[in-house]
Structure formats: structure tokens, C-alpha cells
């Protein structure tokens, strides 16, 4: 199937094409899904190398499962987030059994345009956010990342986390409160006081 046609078909159709031997389907699925899994895993693990391993393993399971995929039963992205969540949980458990590692591996994100100062401020804020996220209990962190960073709806998060929707709402709310409390002490460091001053001046 031509590549530009693959760009508009659903994930499920691509997976069927892959299972039927279409060589271009795997690349299209990888381009579409791997960045999402990698971003999610990086935010949960705060370690790029571990997140890459999780991404490769999650995609590997997708390839293995492709011939048995039952159409209409679930969204592929939901299934993949669920696999990635479980793999990250396993990775964290394994990490606890190993000596502690330094938390210097905040997610590497693509460079954004803007002045050097604002870019640095932005980078500081992101690092602070990821460190704060890392202090949350696992389930709260998963719920907050899925809802507010990955932008998923609560019913989809409930499927991924195997919870009820109310439980997801509760986890998200508690996670945000905890994040606010953790980041409150760093407000001045992160330039939020300057922002408030600028808003008042305007």
C-alpha cells in the first residue's frame, strides 16, 4: 500500500496489514505509536535508556500479538499504553532492588524556539515537574501523566489502569494536589514570581 495512503488509515487497519505481510505497515505504526509510548515511559521512569527498552518491548509485544488481534475489542493505543504501564511498573520494581541511580535523566525533549533565558527557564520548569512527578506514588503519577500530559480521557485511562472512572478521577486529583504542594516550594526558583510581577505590571 502506498505510504501516503498508510498515513490516513487507522492503527487497527495498519496492524492487519502488518499481519498480512505488508512491509510498510510496521514503519507507519512505529512512526505513529513509538513516540507516544516513549514519551509516556520517559515521564514515568525519568530514565531515557529504561524508557527506550520499555518502548522496544511494548512494540515487540504488539508485533507478536498482531496475528491474534481481535478487531473492535480495544484501541491499539490503549492496549499499548497498558502494556507500557505494566512494563514501567516492573522496571521500577527492578530498580528498587538495584542501587539508587541519580535523577539526572529528565526526559530529552525536542528543542523549542524562544529566547535563551526563556528556554532555560522552560527547561528548569520541566526538570522540576519531572522530579515532582517522580515523587508521586506510581498510580497517581500514571493517572496524572495519562490525563494531563498524554491528554487521554478518563474512560480510556480507566481501561489502561484497570480501574473505575471514579478511581481515576480521585487519583488524578490527589496527584495534582501533591504536585502543587511539591512545586510550591520552588515557585521563586522557577520564575513564577517574576511571571506574577509581569502580569501585575500589565
Amino acid at each position: 500500500m502506498p505510504r501516503d495512503t498508510l498515513d490516513v488509515v487507522s492503527d487497527e487497519t495498519l496492524l492487519v496489514l502488518y499481519a498480512n505481510g505488508d512491509p510498510a505497515a510496521a514503519r507507519a505504526l512505529t512512526t505513529r505509536l513509538a513516540p507516544r509510548v516513549l514519551g509516556y515511559a520517559t515521564r514515568l521512569l525519568t530514565d531515557r535508556a529504561e524508557a527506550e527498552d520499555v518502548t522496544q518491548e511494548a512494540m515487540l509485544r504488539l508485533w507478536k500479538m498482531a496475528p491474534q488481534w481481535r478487531a473492535g475489542e480495544a484501541q491499539i493505543s490503549t492496549w499499548l499504553y497498558r502494556v507500557a504501564t505494566n512494563l514501567c511498573t516492573d522496571q521500577k520494581r527492578a530498580r528498587r532492588r538495584r542501587p539508587a541511580i541519580a535523577l539526572d535523566d529528565a526526559p530529552e525533549v525536542a528543542a523549542q524556539s524562544g529566547s535563551a533565558v526563556s528556554s532555560l527557564m522552560q527547561a528548569d520548569r520541566m526538570t522540576a515537574l519531572h522530579r515532582a512527578l517522580d515523587q508521586l506514588p506510581d498510580r497517581q503519577r500514571q493517572a496524572v501523566v495519562l490525563r494531563h500530559i498524554e491528554g487521554l480521557a478518563n474512560p480510556e485511562i480507566a481501561q489502561i489502569m484497570d480501574l473505575g472512572i471514579e478511581a481515576v478521577e480521585s487519583l488524578t486529583a490527589r496527584g495534582k494536589r501533591a504536585l502543587t504542594a511539591i512545586l510550591a516550594g520552588r515557585k521563586a526558583d522557577l520564575g513564577y514570581d517574576d511571571d506574577a510581577d509581569e502580569r501585575e505590571a500589565v
Binding site: 512505529t30 513509538a34 513516540p35 516513549l38 514519551g39 520517559t42 515521564r43 527506550e52 518502548t55 522496544q56 512494540m59 515487540l60 526526559p107 530529552e108 525533549v109 525536542a110 523549542q112 522552560q122 520548569r125 520541566m126 515537574l129 519531572h130 496524572v144 494531563h148 500530559i149 498524554e150 491528554g151
Partner: peptide, 19 residues
């Protein structure tokens, strides 16, 4: 959080090749 979500985390060429 929204800014964090808007920042892409692109896979490296090596990871894409492995996948």
C-alpha cells in the same frame, strides 16, 4: 503539564531501527 505534553519525545534513529 500542557507544555510538557506539547514537547515531543522523539525516538532516536537507533531505537527506531531496533523496533
Amino acid at each position: 503539564l500542557a507544555k510538557a505534553g506539547a514537547l515531543p519525545v522523539p525516538p532516536s534513529a537507533a531505537l527506531t531501527a531496533r523496533i
